[in-house]
């Protein structure tokens, strides 16, 4: 039994009868399936870009790439699975360009889940993503709130003012929430700020810390261990058990950071 396959057979057959225009439909659904455990499988999108769609029967064990297109497909599939839940599917873990689907292994086999998901993939193009919400996050940069800002600037040869300007100049996309409740993976960081994560993670990162790692940025909702470089802090609660939405950010939202003073931070924190 093969645990991965690339092109749905049903699609290959149907392709003969398709017009050129409807090949778009076929393009949108290219995904690779990979068993993850005896009760879950992964769907990877857009692994090799636009050009290499066909290829051999067995995909090489490549890592997926981060592309907005791949992430949009993740969000479409997630949306479709939320609108039309599959009985027996118990959980979904979206990420940059993949979706982990966890199912009741007593009720279903991997092959059945894969078959159902392939039908969903054929319909991805018709899925309307909700209009992205725009969220502004006030951040007090540097100092004790951003203990790694100086190091980031030194590594990249820029001033702190420039780093703050860069970080707050971009509208970021929430690629997904993961790691811990309400942690949003935001991209992409302006190239001038791209810095690898810390070699040794901190045991405890304060809640509200704004970090960067590679070309990503994000806010720690809780005091947790963490290896991202900390450049500032927000007083906003990223995840609240007492609110309806729970998480301040949702997958697909657009985020901007606004620099604020220490005084303003203190005011917001005590509010």
């Amino acid at each position: 039994m093969s645990s991965r396959s690339r092109i749905p057979f049903s699609t290959l057959f149907r392709l003969w009868g398709y017009t050129f225009a409807s090949m778009e439909t076929w393009r949108g659904e290219v995904a690779r399936f990979q068993y993850s455990s005896d009760q879950s499988l992964l769907v990877y999108f857009d692994e090799q870009g636009e050009q290499k769609k066909t290829g051999g029967a067995k995909a090489p064990p490549v890592q997926s790439r981060i592309t907005l297109r791949g992430n949009e497909n993740v969000r479409r599939l997630l949306r479709l699975l939320e609108l039309e839940p599959v009985p027996g599917v118990r959980n979904l873990h979206p990420a940059y360009c993949s979706l982990l689907v966890k199912f009741d292994a007593i009720r279903m086999r991997h092959e059945e889940v894969e078959g159902i998901l392939r039908k969903y993939l054929e319909r991805l193009k018709e899925v309307k993503l909700p209009e992205p919400r725009r969220v502004e996050i006030p951040v007090c940069y540097g100092g004790e709130f951003g203990p790694d800002l100086a190091e980031v600037c030194a590594r990249r040869g820029i001033t702190q003012a420039r780093a703050i300007e860069l970080h707050s100049s971009v509208e970021y996309v929430v690629y997904f929430l993961g790691f811990v409740p309400g942690f949003a993976y935001l991209g992409e960081l302006p190239e001038e700020l791209v810095t690898p994560r810390l070699a040794a993670p901190r045991n405890r990162v304060p809640a509200g810390s704004v970090g960067i790692a590679g070309n990503q940025t994000g806010v720690y909702p809780f005091a947790t261990p963490g290896g991202w470089r900390l450049i500032g802090r927000t007083a906003l609660k990223m995840f609240r058990a007492d609110s309806d939405g729970l998480s301040l950010l949702s997958i697909g939202d657009r985020v901007r950071f606004t620099p604020i003073s220490r005084e303003r931070f203190a005011t917001l924190e005590s509010a």
Partner: peptide
């Protein structure tokens, strides 16, 4: 060769 990109992880991984 290279870090992998974050993805969903299952219980018992």
């Amino acid at each position: 060769g290279g870090e992998m990109i974050s993805e969903g992880v299952s219980l018992g991984a």
